[in-house]
């Protein structure tokens, strides 16, 4: 399981790259492995404002569908259009070309609740029992 140092993580298996007042968001390597082959990704419209914990889209694999949740409240400023034609990027490059959305953060105090790579690895191990 790959967990890049520079990212922060959530219990819903999303990663965030915080860049000032903005964040790029995707799902983790562990999440894509659990899902299996991703065949469709549904993303929100740019400009949409969502609260932390709200679903912003879904990832469909051969097996199942998973909702993806806002790790922070904010407004969507960019979505990864590439995933419309090549959703498999989520499997091949979950932290790179498989990113999903970029948001403008509404409340930066929420960042404190995100997990470090070490905390996330521990969380995944505990979840697996």
């Amino acid at each position: 399981m790959d967990t890049p140092e520079e990212l922060q993580y959530t219990k819903e298996h999303e990663w965030l790259m915080i860049e000032g007042n903005a964040a790029r968001i995707g799902i983790t390597d562990h999440a894509q492995q659990e899902l299996g082959d991703v065949v469709y990704v549904e993303l929100p419209d740019v400009g949409k404002t969502l609260d932390k914990g709200e679903s912003f889209g879904s990832v469909e694999s051969v097996k199942a569908v998973s909702e993806i949740y806002m790790p922070l409240s904010g407004t969507v400023t960019e979505v990864n259009e590439v995933l419309a034609d090549t959703p498999e990027e989520v499997n091949g490059s979950p932290y790179g070309d498989g990113w999903m959305i970029r948001i403008e953060i509404a409340d930066s105090s929420q960042i404190d609740q995100l997990m470090t790579p070490e905390e996330y690895v521990t969380y995944v191990e505990e979840e697996a029992g």
């Binding site: 299996g36 082959d37 051969v62 097996k63």
Partner: peptide, 9 residues
């Protein structure tokens, strides 16, 4: 087994 590696593969 539902799949081994990739169901698409």
């Amino acid at each position: 087994p539902v799949q081994y590696g990739s169901a698409v593969a």
